[in-house]
Nucleic acid binder design. Structure first.
Lengths: 217, 217
DNA sequence: TAAATTTTTTAGTCTAATCTAAATTTAATA
DNA sequence: TATTAAATTTAGATTAGACTAAAAAATTTA
């Protein structure tokens, strides 16, 4: 069984290796975890002994198959709990992360599987991220960034790239959430700002915002 | 904030001081926690510094008001989670303890209070133990042991003293649970065994069993 | 490519929670 | 009450995970 801390490392390595390809650097994990690089090196060695990562000095780490599985089990729990918090406990999508960070470490297969059943086998969490099923398989639909959507083509918001509270609350205030229909009406060459149709209202957003919203065309 | 371990100690001290009166001995906590007495002494000192217990060398400990509050917050979470596991996640009353031991350490007032609301403010957990409300107040009805019930007087099972899986499964097999009407039909002087009416069936139980079932007359 | 900079690792230290073994205090018993 | 037994505490060691500071390797830049 993993300690709480090794689980945090595995998850961080998993997420890091999703965005960047190849091996994951010591510093990038240090930043995510909030630890010093020297501590990360120590942990890399430990995880390597347990055959959860492949580690070579100065070359960063990559997850082994077993490491990926362990990470996905944590991601699965995290996203199931987030779904539960939003759907049944009146949590807002910007409030769930911190609590799910704790709940993801609870060890009980029965609990996880029954929670999944209780939620009726959800495929995506409140931020639109896919939830691994019992076999740790997950299907992410092919989504694009709102910024990449052609003019006057309609899409539906299916997720966000930035999960920070600030960004999520910003979207709430503009009434943009999962399922909201979105369309770009006009691109301002001057400052890259965008006029968009979001549901029934039209509004202006920045390029940066458009690069953090995922849509399905 | 308490570490996971200090919470375990506070809960153990709380439970110990419920059954016995006066101060709680080092060894009794060592046994509950599964630690050596020397470790317990160390922790008593730490808790004492934090003003959560009153501790005098060789004299055992007792919880301060703040210590009781902290313990009750954990008991509250433990029992709410147990209730949730049984009522919504198909857990049996003998399966919940180990998982609730983990869940009780999750730190989120909102989570606890919303869980309570979701469960519709339950007053007792699946074993009949009272659940402290948000103000940490709990009302336990005046219950007696089945062993103390006079002959041919009817009572209703409201809880158990022994929460072990073995005992709970034993009760399951005999179809005795919270709410089951119980009546003693005959006491065997020879071996203290009891013939009882439990719901629609009559059966024989030992004195020991009768001393671990709580009933309301 | 040599020098400068950045990244990573090593070596040694710290803290919380545990342990063992020995010493001390309290409680039980003869 | 003196002795023995049991409970408790102290002293010193261990482990996991983290840290700082210094050394070593890799990368970038001139």
């Amino acid at each position: 069984m993993q300690t709480l801390s090794t689980e945090d490392y595995l998850k961080a390595i998993y997420h890091a290796s999703q965005s960047a390809s190849g091996t994951v650097a010591t510093t990038s994990i240090a930043n995510k975890i909030g630890a010093k690089p020297s501590s990360v090196t120590d942990m890399f060695k430990k995880l390597s002994e347990q055959k959860l990562v492949k580690y070579e000095k100065y070359q960063g780490v990559s997850l082994t198959n077993e490491g990926v599985k362990t990470a996905l089990r944590i991601v699965r729990k995290h996203r199931l709990w987030e779904s539960f918090l939003v759907s049944h406990l009146n949590f807002n999508w910007d409030e769930v992360h911190q609590v799910a960070e704790q709940l993801e470490h609870i060890q009980s297969e029965k609990l996880t599987n029954e929670l999944e059943r209780f939620l009726d086998y959800p495929t995506h969490d409140p931020h639109g991220d896919p939830i691994p099923n019992r076999a740790l398989f997950m299907k992410s639909y092919n989504k694009i960034l709102l910024a990449e959507l052609p003019l006057n083509k309609e899409g539906v918001c299916v997720g966000v790239k930035d999960n920070s509270s600030d960004f999520l609350r910003y979207l709430d205030r503009r009434q943009i959430g999962i399922g909201t229909p979105l369309m770009i009406l006009h691109r301002e060459d001057f400052d890259q700002s965008l006029h968009i149709q979001a549901g029934n209202s039209t509004l202006m957003i920045t390029q940066k915002t458009a690069e953090n919203i995922y849509i399905k065309p």
